[in-house]
Amino acid sequence: MKRSSFLLTTLFALPFAIQSLAQDKDEAPYDTKNFSGNLSNVRVETSGGSITVDGNQSSGVKVEMYVRPNNWPSNKVSKEEIEERLKEYDIKMAVEGNTVVATAKRKGRNNWDWKRSLSIAFKVYTPKNFATDLHTSGGSIRISNLVGTQNFATSGGSLHLSSIEGLIKGRTSGGSIHLDRCRKDIDLATSGGSIHAEDSDGNLNLRTSGGSVNLTNLSGRVNAHTSGGSVKGEGVKGELVAGTSGGSVRLYNISGSVEASTSGGGMDVEITKLGEYVRLSGGPGSVNVRMPLDQGIDLDLSGNRVDIPLSKFDGTVEKDRVRGRLNGGGVPVRISAGSGSVRVNR
């Protein structure tokens, strides 16, 4: 039932996502407004279009509104028809206190003819130190070059973040997540898309219910989970907690503490520098690990077969279990495979 609900949500959101693609470079905005004063926040809400916020403005705030008919570009209508349909919407582009507000809402839901609906998108240009509150029901959200608190959500589009610093919280019900050069506190989740995170640092909390997770050149504390895809990581430093319920785990050039798990695939992990712990839990597949063995380690390895080169070891060695102290003991390393084997430095 849960899967059926997700499919219905995704199919419903798809037309909006398609029609709310980023504006063509040559497309002129339907309306533009400029604001000045003591401004520090922007709030944007629209039901069918995309939202873009860029913090490269030296001063003041510029808001551009773009209007398209449903199923654009196959469904093209005249400017007069656009203006007639806009009468069915409440459009607001104004300042409230220290907040720039841009909203587009239908006046009534009764007798709503989706064929007459419009995709109303907003592009906002702000100074770098700006906070956002963004919501759209069907389009993508793009934010870049900002410092501050960022809160945003979409029901059917993707999230794109670039060069963002601060408290960041984003949600999408059906799209992918892309972030690069972001830092501090990052909390992002999607119900149906993949996650790509690169060149970022801080506290990263990344979750998807139906896609893959790709992590590249991250540092700090990284928590990444998926319910249905694979997890791939390379060049992660600090602390990495990653897991999947249905795919494989592939981690390379990891420096620091690692906790990873899978219920449905194999695991291949390369640790170049040990942190405070290693905890790896595999499912039906094998767990292959490459890691330094020349320092103090408390080993606890289990699987249908365990294979590891040992010297200066004090403990028990069995076909399916190795447990004891390596080089006098130290970093706790626990690696298990359900029905698969565990191989370390083999």
Rank of each mutant, 00 (worst) to 15 (best):
H160Y: 14
T136K: 02
V147C: 06
D133V: 08
S140A: 14
T126N: 05
D133N: 14
T132A: 10
G157C: 09
N129S: 15
F122G: 04
L146G: 01
Y125T: 14
L161V: 02
F122M: 09
I143T: 15
S137W: 01
S140I: 06
N145Y: 13
G157V: 06
A131C: 08
L134Q: 05
Y125S: 12
S155C: 03
K128C: 07
T126E: 01
G157D: 06
G148C: 04
H135G: 11
G139P: 00
T126R: 05
T154S: 09
T149E: 15
L146N: 03
T149A: 12
T132K: 12
P127N: 06
V147I: 13
G156V: 04
S162N: 14
L134F: 12
S140D: 12
D133K: 15
N151I: 12
Q150D: 04
S140R: 06
H160D: 13
T126V: 14
T132H: 13
S137R: 09
S155H: 02
S144I: 08
A131L: 04
G148L: 08
P127L: 10
S162Q: 13
F130G: 03
S144C: 08
T149N: 10
L161K: 03
T154C: 07
G156R: 00
Y125E: 07
N151Q: 13
T136G: 02
R142S: 15
K123E: 11
V147P: 00
N129R: 15
V147E: 13
S158W: 03
D133Y: 12
G157S: 05
V147Q: 11
S158E: 09
L134G: 03
V124A: 02
D133H: 14
N151K: 11
T132S: 10
F122N: 01
K123Q: 11
T136Q: 04
V124Q: 00
V124W: 00
S163T: 14
H135M: 11
G138H: 03
S162C: 05
F130R: 07
K123F: 12
P127Q: 07
T149C: 02
G157T: 07
F130A: 09
L161Y: 01
G157H: 06
T154P: 03
G139Y: 00
T126Q: 05
P127R: 08
S155G: 10
G156Q: 06
Y125C: 13
L159D: 05
S137T: 10
L134D: 02
F122R: 04
S155V: 02
D133P: 11
S144P: 01
L146C: 02
T149Y: 06
G148P: 02
T132Q: 10
G139K: 01
R142C: 09
V124R: 00
G148D: 09
K123H: 14
F152K: 01
S163V: 11
H160Q: 13
N129L: 15
G138C: 11
S162W: 02
S144H: 09
